[in-house]
Amino acid sequence: MQRVNMIMAESPGLITICLLGYLLSAECTVFLDHENANKILNRPKRYNSGKLEEFVQGNLERECMEEKCSFEEAREVFENTERTTEFWKQYVDGDQCESNPCLNGGSCKDDINSYECWCPFGFEGKNCELDVTCNIKNGRCEQFCKNSADNKVVCSCTEGYRLAENQKSCEPAVPFPCGRVSVSQTSKLTRAETVFPDVDYVNSTEAETILDNITQSTQSFNDFTRVVGGEDAKPGQFPWQVVLNGKVDAFCGGSIVNEKWIVTAAHCVETGVKITVVAGEHNIEETEHTEQKRNVIRIIPHHNYNAAINKYNHDIALLELDEPLVLNSYVTPICIADKEYTNIFLKFGSGYVSGWGRVFHKGRSALVLQYLRVPLVDRATCLRSTKFTIYNNMFCAGFHEGGRDSCQGDSGGPHVTEVEGTSFLTGIISWGEECAMKGKYGIYTKVSRYVNWIKEKTKLT
C-alpha cells in the first residue's frame, strides 16, 4: 500500500490518463441519441435557420407576430419608411378606419389613436360632414345658397324668414311668412316636400332668348283662358290664391305678392273693366268669414305684352289694390325667389296649380277651390304637342294621358313649387288646347323671366 501511494504521488498524470480511459469505455446513459432527441424537440425550422439574422431580410411573422416588435424591426421587413409607417399605425392600436367614419364618399386613412378623412370636392370637416359648395344638395341650405369668396357655403332665406341657429334652416321672422300653410287642420295635408338634388348652379339658368321682337298675326285659340281631375282644397291650404270678379264672377285667378299687390295673367284683364279681388276665398257660393274683398285701382301688364300681336306672350300683369290686405292664416303671400332659384325650383319637376275653373272641358265651374299636382314636361315634348308657338318664356306641365289639367277660369292662378315646406311661385296658368285632352298640356308663363320686374313694381313704400 505504501508503494502504491508513492507511485500516485510521483505520477499524477498517469492516474488522470487511467481515469479518462475508464470513462470513455463506459456506456453513456444520461444523453439520448440524435434521433430520439429530435422526437422530443420537434420544432419547425425557421426561415433563416442556421444563418445569422443580421444578414437576412426581415420576416413579418418572425419579427412582429411571434413577439412584439419595434418600429426598427418592422422597418427591416418593409425596407421602406412609408410602408412601415402605414403598417405601424394599425399594428400599434388597430384600424381606426374600420367603422368607416368618413361621410359623403370620403376616404379614410388610419393613424395612431386617430384617423384622417380625405374629402371629395365640396366637403370638409373631420368626417367630411361639412358642405362647402352650393353645387351639392344646395349646400344643405333649406332655401338659398351662395358661395363666399373663400368658396364656403353661405345660406340665406327669402323675405319674412331668418336663418336658424344651425345656419342652414329657415324659420319665420314674421307672423305670416310667405308660402307657408298655417291653418292647423290643413298642415297635415301639406304636399310632399321637395329635397334639393345635386345641381350645376353655374349652368342652372337656361341660355334662352326671349323672342321679344317676333311679330306674329293673332292666333285663334280655343278655350285658351284655361282644375280638371283635381281635388277639393281645404280652407287655408292655398292662402296665396285669390279669385278675380268682373263682368262675371271667378273669371280668373291670381296670387298675393304682398298686402297691396296681386300677380295674374295679362290676358285676364281689360282696361276700363272694374275688377274686384277676393282673398281668403274657399267656396265661392258661401260666406265663410275668411274672405277679404278689395278693388283694383291700377293694372300693370308687362311692358312687352301686346294682345294685338299675341294674347299669351309675356302673359303676366300686376294688380294694385285700393287697401292693403290683412295677412292671416287664410290670406298669405306666395314666396318669389330670384331668377336663378325660381328656375331651379321649376326644374324640380312638379308643381301645384289651383283655381275655381271648370271641372271638365266646357263644363261647370268649381264651387270649392280645386288643386292638382302636375309634372313638368320637357321642352321637346311640349313643342311636338301643339302647332302653336311655345315661346321661351312659357313652359308645359300636365299629363300625356289627359284627364287632369287646369281649365277655363283658372287662368292667372299660381303654379307653385314647394321647397322644404315653403311654396314659391314658378308659373302662372296661361293657356292650353281644350282641357285635359290626351297628348295636350297646360301652358304656363315662366315666372323666372319676370321676377325682377315683379319685385321692382310691387315694392311697398
Score class of each variant (00 low, 15 high):
residue 178 C to E: 01
residue 449 R to G: 13
residue 21 G to E: 04
residue 140 R to T: 03
residue 202 V to H: 07
residue 443 I to C: 03
residue 136 I to G: 04
residue 263 V to R: 00
residue 237 Q to T: 08
residue 367 L to F: 12
residue 169 S to M: 09
residue 281 E to K: 12
residue 449 R to F: 12
residue 203 N to F: 07
residue 395 F to L: 00
residue 347 K to V: 03
residue 46 R to Q: 15
residue 345 F to L: 07
residue 65 M to T: 15
residue 332 T to G: 04
residue 195 V to F: 07
residue 152 K to L: 09
residue 151 N to K: 12
residue 306 N to A: 07
residue 402 G to K: 14
residue 148 S to E: 09
residue 71 F to K: 13
residue 80 N to A: 11
residue 230 G to R: 10
residue 8 M to P: 12
residue 25 S to A: 08
residue 250 A to D: 06
residue 175 P to Q: 06
residue 219 Q to Y: 07
residue 202 V to T: 13
residue 98 E to R: 09
residue 284 I to T: 11
residue 142 E to H: 06
residue 19 L to P: 03
residue 312 Y to C: 04
residue 430 S to G: 13
residue 253 G to W: 08
residue 393 N to K: 03
residue 152 K to S: 10
residue 369 L to I: 07
residue 301 P to A: 10
residue 155 C to Q: 00
residue 25 S to L: 12
residue 201 Y to D: 10
residue 200 D to M: 06
residue 184 S to N: 12
residue 254 G to A: 04
residue 163 L to T: 05
residue 255 S to L: 04
residue 197 P to S: 12
residue 314 H to W: 07
residue 122 G to K: 03
residue 234 K to W: 11
residue 204 S to P: 12
residue 408 Q to V: 06
residue 137 K to G: 14
residue 363 G to N: 06
residue 105 G to T: 02
residue 25 S to F: 12
residue 400 H to R: 14
residue 338 D to N: 11
residue 245 N to F: 05
residue 180 R to A: 05
residue 59 N to D: 08
residue 58 G to E: 04
residue 399 F to Q: 14
residue 372 L to P: 03
residue 214 I to D: 07
residue 442 G to A: 14
residue 333 P to V: 00
residue 339 K to L: 05
residue 354 S to D: 01
residue 54 E to D: 14
residue 18 C to Y: 04
residue 330 Y to D: 04
residue 3 R to S: 10
residue 303 H to F: 07
residue 158 T to V: 12
residue 204 S to V: 13
residue 181 V to G: 10
residue 366 A to I: 09
residue 447 V to S: 03
residue 11 S to Q: 07
residue 27 E to T: 09
residue 51 K to G: 15
residue 107 S to F: 07
residue 153 V to N: 04
residue 310 N to D: 09
residue 180 R to H: 10
residue 115 Y to F: 07
residue 343 N to C: 03
residue 213 N to I: 08
residue 224 F to N: 13
residue 215 T to F: 08
residue 178 C to R: 01
residue 231 E to N: 14
residue 92 V to C: 04
residue 94 G to Q: 10
residue 312 Y to A: 06
residue 245 N to E: 06
residue 201 Y to M: 11
residue 334 I to M: 00
residue 229 G to K: 12
residue 240 W to A: 01
residue 163 L to N: 03
residue 454 I to M: 06
residue 447 V to C: 03
residue 12 P to L: 15
residue 55 F to R: 15
residue 115 Y to S: 01
residue 434 E to N: 12
residue 359 V to T: 14
residue 374 V to W: 04
residue 188 K to P: 13
residue 413 G to V: 07
residue 398 G to H: 03
residue 79 E to I: 13
residue 315 D to Y: 01
residue 316 I to S: 01
residue 297 I to S: 07
residue 401 E to R: 15
residue 16 T to A: 11
residue 376 L to Q: 06
residue 423 S to Y: 15
residue 96 Q to V: 06
residue 307 A to G: 13
residue 410 D to E: 14
residue 160 G to R: 02
residue 242 V to N: 01
residue 265 A to D: 00
residue 327 L to Y: 08
residue 19 L to Q: 02
residue 391 Y to A: 10
residue 202 V to A: 13
residue 266 A to K: 02
residue 349 G to T: 04
residue 204 S to Q: 05
residue 339 K to H: 08
residue 241 Q to K: 05
residue 346 L to K: 03
residue 316 I to N: 00
residue 394 M to E: 02
residue 357 G to S: 13
residue 332 T to R: 13
residue 163 L to R: 03
residue 177 P to S: 05
residue 306 N to M: 06
residue 310 N to T: 07
residue 197 P to N: 05
residue 41 L to E: 11
residue 386 T to W: 07
residue 251 F to C: 05
residue 310 N to P: 03
residue 119 C to I: 00
residue 102 C to M: 00
residue 276 T to V: 07
residue 448 S to M: 03
residue 376 L to D: 01
residue 335 C to F: 00
residue 180 R to M: 06
residue 32 L to D: 15
residue 56 V to G: 15
residue 301 P to L: 12
residue 379 R to L: 14
residue 389 T to R: 15
residue 167 Q to D: 09
residue 293 K to H: 09
residue 319 L to Y: 02
residue 417 T to I: 05
residue 325 L to C: 01
residue 15 I to G: 04
residue 44 P to Y: 10
residue 250 A to E: 07
residue 78 F to Q: 15
residue 251 F to W: 08
residue 433 E to P: 11
residue 365 S to I: 11
residue 409 G to S: 13
residue 346 L to V: 07
residue 50 G to S: 07
residue 188 K to Q: 11
residue 320 E to V: 00
residue 290 T to Q: 10
residue 141 C to E: 00
residue 185 Q to S: 12
residue 30 V to Y: 15
residue 106 G to I: 00
residue 244 L to I: 08
residue 326 V to I: 12
residue 276 T to H: 08
residue 22 Y to M: 13
residue 192 A to L: 13
residue 396 C to K: 01
residue 209 T to S: 13
residue 38 N to Q: 15
residue 169 S to N: 12
residue 153 V to A: 09
residue 441 Y to F: 10
residue 279 A to W: 00
residue 19 L to V: 07
residue 38 N to H: 10
residue 290 T to M: 08
residue 447 V to T: 06
residue 80 N to I: 04
residue 49 S to M: 11
residue 129 E to Y: 01
residue 328 N to F: 01
residue 204 S to W: 10
residue 197 P to W: 08
residue 273 V to Q: 05
residue 364 R to L: 09
residue 429 I to S: 15
residue 26 A to F: 05
residue 347 K to C: 03
residue 174 V to D: 07
residue 415 H to K: 01
residue 156 S to G: 07
residue 339 K to P: 15
residue 313 N to W: 09
residue 156 S to Q: 08
residue 126 K to R: 10
residue 58 G to I: 11
residue 294 R to N: 01
residue 438 K to E: 14
residue 296 V to F: 01
residue 422 T to G: 01
residue 54 E to L: 05
residue 119 C to G: 01
residue 204 S to A: 05
residue 207 A to D: 08
residue 95 D to R: 08
residue 204 S to D: 10
residue 362 K to F: 05
residue 451 V to W: 03
residue 346 L to F: 06
residue 418 E to G: 05
residue 270 E to K: 11
residue 236 G to H: 09
residue 18 C to W: 06
residue 220 S to T: 09
residue 25 S to C: 13
residue 235 P to R: 08
residue 373 R to L: 06
residue 75 R to S: 09
residue 285 E to C: 05
residue 59 N to P: 08
residue 378 D to T: 07
residue 410 D to S: 09
residue 210 I to T: 13
residue 169 S to V: 06
residue 351 G to T: 02
residue 360 F to L: 13
residue 125 G to C: 00
residue 284 I to A: 08
residue 17 I to K: 02
residue 123 F to V: 04
residue 441 Y to L: 12
residue 85 T to C: 04
residue 164 A to F: 03
residue 375 P to T: 14
residue 34 H to K: 10
residue 129 E to L: 01
residue 262 I to Y: 00
residue 453 W to I: 00
residue 103 L to S: 07
residue 276 T to C: 04
residue 156 S to C: 04
residue 172 P to D: 04
residue 110 D to Y: 04
residue 29 T to E: 13
residue 437 M to F: 14
residue 103 L to K: 08
residue 435 C to K: 04
residue 335 C to E: 00
residue 367 L to R: 14
residue 238 F to T: 03
residue 135 N to G: 09
residue 197 P to H: 14
residue 442 G to W: 05
residue 68 K to T: 15
residue 169 S to C: 04
residue 5 N to W: 09
residue 185 Q to A: 05
residue 199 V to W: 11
residue 36 N to M: 09
residue 399 F to S: 13
residue 412 G to F: 07
residue 338 D to T: 10
residue 45 K to G: 14
residue 258 N to M: 02
residue 44 P to C: 03
residue 342 T to L: 04
residue 176 F to H: 09
residue 453 W to E: 00
residue 15 I to Y: 06
residue 393 N to E: 06
residue 245 N to H: 13
residue 166 N to M: 02
residue 342 T to F: 00
residue 381 T to D: 12
residue 6 M to T: 13
residue 438 K to I: 06
residue 226 R to C: 05
residue 403 G to A: 08
residue 273 V to K: 13
residue 36 N to F: 09
residue 28 C to D: 03
residue 115 Y to D: 01
residue 260 K to V: 04
residue 365 S to F: 07
residue 416 V to P: 00
residue 234 K to C: 03
residue 60 L to V: 15
residue 212 D to Q: 13
residue 79 E to R: 09
residue 51 K to N: 15
residue 444 Y to H: 03
residue 414 P to K: 00
residue 163 L to M: 05
residue 154 V to S: 09
residue 314 H to K: 02
residue 95 D to S: 07
residue 410 D to I: 15
residue 203 N to L: 10
residue 202 V to N: 13
residue 238 F to H: 04
residue 163 L to H: 01
residue 314 H to V: 03
residue 343 N to H: 07
residue 225 T to F: 07
residue 15 I to T: 05
residue 423 S to Q: 08
residue 226 R to W: 07
residue 420 E to I: 07
residue 330 Y to L: 05
residue 421 G to A: 07
residue 2 Q to V: 13
residue 334 I to P: 01
residue 242 V to R: 00
residue 277 V to H: 00
residue 456 E to D: 12
residue 41 L to D: 15
residue 279 A to L: 01
residue 307 A to F: 09
residue 180 R to S: 04
residue 381 T to A: 12
residue 45 K to M: 14
residue 32 L to C: 05
residue 12 P to G: 12
residue 152 K to G: 10
residue 153 V to T: 07
residue 258 N to G: 03
residue 348 F to T: 15
residue 312 Y to T: 03
residue 264 T to L: 02
residue 398 G to R: 05
residue 327 L to I: 14
residue 112 I to H: 10
residue 180 R to C: 03
residue 280 G to Y: 02
residue 323 E to H: 11
residue 396 C to H: 02
residue 20 L to G: 02
residue 384 R to H: 09
residue 238 F to C: 04
residue 414 P to M: 10
residue 460 L to S: 08
residue 174 V to R: 09
residue 35 E to G: 13
residue 36 N to C: 04
residue 119 C to T: 01
residue 332 T to W: 02
residue 16 T to G: 10
residue 68 K to A: 08
residue 184 S to D: 13
residue 77 V to I: 07
residue 245 N to V: 09
residue 101 P to E: 02
residue 151 N to R: 10
residue 50 G to T: 15
residue 424 F to S: 01
residue 437 M to D: 12
